[in-house]
Computed example of a mutant assay.
Amino acid sequence: MERALTPKGAATRQRIVEGAAQLIRVRGVPNVGLDDIRAATSTSKSQLFHYFPAGKADLMLAVARHEAGQVLEDQMPMLGDLTSWRKWQAWRRRVIKIYDGQRQRCPLSALTAQLGNADPATREIVTTLLDDWHGLLAAGVQALKDAGEVDASIDADKAATAVLTAVTGGAGMLQATDRISYLEVALSEAIDNLRRPRARVSAA
């Protein structure tokens, strides 16, 4: 459990985390050391280990939590207000723009690859992110159902899973191939599928 910090201490810690995140986005985890972070954030060695006693391991987890929060923050306010088709399309464009700009430098993916998803702390960060993301998407699908804009038989949770999988899968293929088209097509299809009428099964 993290110890309580004074407002000044919390601000200093956050400044270190944000500075480390900026370096990692540019250079990648393997090419960023504690000395680089200290120089970029004007932090002394004693300060760094005061806030991150285990050194780089602690700091990288803090950066991973920060970047996980940024994944959703970067999609706001669209992601939190998916109440119409126009807003769903605005969110889709926002997501594609974000990943098109990041390309192979998705900061959260770089961190989780370096830290390893087998680590319970890393897995918890990623799982919490995906659960929160899924919840916002499911709320958006439910809003469309409540407005009568999609078939009432659509399962909001399953639809949200399909959309989220399209984003994460498309982003993964983007990193592997540097082709944004995988994300564009997968996400567009997942959203368009919400609008397609469901087949009715008649009783025999």
Results as ranks from 00 to 15, higher is better:
27 R>T: 00
96 I>H: 09
131 D>E: 10
145 K>M: 08
69 G>L: 05
9 G>F: 07
156 A>F: 03
203 A>R: 02
21 A>P: 03
57 A>Q: 05
141 V>H: 01
98 I>R: 15
175 Q>H: 09
129 L>M: 11
178 D>L: 01
154 I>W: 15
192 D>W: 02
9 G>S: 09
80 G>M: 06
163 V>Y: 07
177 T>M: 01
167 V>Q: 14
197 P>G: 06
47 Q>T: 10
201 V>T: 13
14 Q>A: 09
175 Q>C: 02
57 A>C: 00
71 V>A: 11
120 P>K: 09
38 R>P: 03
121 A>P: 01
138 A>R: 15
12 T>D: 08
122 T>A: 06
43 T>R: 08
80 G>D: 11
75 Q>I: 01
95 V>W: 08
98 I>H: 10
196 R>D: 01
130 L>R: 11
204 A>V: 05
190 A>V: 00
30 P>Q: 09
36 D>E: 11
71 V>N: 08
72 L>Q: 09
13 R>E: 13
32 V>D: 07
1 M>L: 03
66 H>W: 14
168 T>W: 12
204 A>T: 05
67 E>K: 05
19 G>H: 10
135 G>C: 07
6 T>Q: 12
158 K>E: 06
87 K>Y: 00
8 K>N: 02
121 A>I: 02
118 A>H: 09
99 Y>G: 02
102 Q>E: 10
57 A>D: 10
21 A>M: 04
84 S>L: 06
162 A>W: 13
